[in-house]
Nucleic acid binder design. Structure first.
Lengths: 189, 189
DNA sequence: CTGCACACGTGACAC
DNA sequence: TGTGTCACGTGTGCA
């Protein structure tokens, strides 16, 4: 009766956890037959590495990347989860007029802008800013908001490069203005 | 007796797993007081996000990616299709001795090496090189060659992570980056 | 009372 | 044979 439902619920719980565990097993580049505990240890180390690498790249690197890209990550929660912040960045060709679009786009989210930084280098620009979302939010809300911001930045990028660059983009999608890696003599326009 | 040691061992196992779980709870920027299952779900999404960021960033970037990967793309054709070039890259753990394998593997294709670049970062390495194939080739031939090179690089990666490589690693005289990898035309210093 | 999540001990199976 | 891990059912505390 009640006993049965209990064991059933517990079994559901178990298989939920195990499903997530096997998902992680597939996600982490480690051998498949591992202890449940060792798997978690591997996950920990990989999360650490990825996080270090990501922060090293996007936080410390204000140099615009050679490819167009947007980035949006949850940064940290305030205590008691009453607020959290999102760090987002955008790298693209240096067109100051997209800043207006960027501003309008971000205003729609009604977030508090804690800070922003703009850098340019050889025709490329990068904008990185820190947004704060106050008030209680659930886990999924936070992720949804982060994803929405990322999507919004992507749309800014699309609008910025839509009409005039269309031909360029179709012939060399995302390949323009590559860092002259090998061609020391030949000049790229 | 035996029963007691059993339950004891099981308890140790549990607290080991839980310790790893709390560690993860601290690592993920969005978690406190969450279901054990929800925590794992969050870990999954964050690993995915970080991994996507890493892979997207690694395109055309010379900093080694966090995940092992190979890349091979047709770059451009010379006029009238009398030649074309392939840009390929390989990211893996920093083991200089795989450069020898890489060299042998690529020699089989008898392509001209236009240039190469090796970079390392925190135990990871990335090799990017530009190969030229001269002579007339058809569309399908070009794609086939590119795919073959990619496959070859994959095999290098596989060999590098197989057990026998361990012996190679320990016995190989660790000459620094001066391995004559691309002695196509100019003399290496 | 009912669902929900956790820790515990135990049987089963592997080396 | 013990010394591991795993899955299961159950007891307990919390909304």
């Amino acid at each position: 009766m009640a006993l049965k439902s209990h064991s059933e619920a517990e079994r559901r719980r178990r298989e939920r956890i195990n499903a997530h565990l096997t998902t992680l097993r597939g996600l982490i580049p480690c051998s498949d037959k591992l202890d449940k505990a060792s798997l978690l240890a591997e996950v920990i180390s990989h999360v650490k590495r990825l996080k270090n690498n990501a922060t090293e790249m996007s936080k410390g690197c204000i140099v615009p990347s050679e490819v167009d890209e947007v980035r949006a990550e949850m940064e940290r929660l305030g205590m008691n989860s009453e607020s959290f912040s999102i760090k987002a960045s955008l790298s693209c060709d240096d067109r100051p007029e997209i800043l207006a679009d960027l501003k309008n786009t971000l205003q729609a989210f009604k977030l508090k802008t804690l800070g922003a930084e703009i850098s340019t280098l050889s025709g490329r620009m990068k904008v990185v800013f820190l947004l704060a979302c106050e008030g209680n939010t659930t886990e999924t809300e936070r992720h949804l908001l982060t994803a929405s911001i990322q999507q919004a930045l992507k749309s800014v990028l699309d609008r910025a490069s839509s009409p005039q660059d269309f031909l360029l983009r179709t012939s060399y999608p995302n390949k323009r203005r590559r860092i002259p890696l090998f061609e020391s003599s030949s000049s790229s326009s």
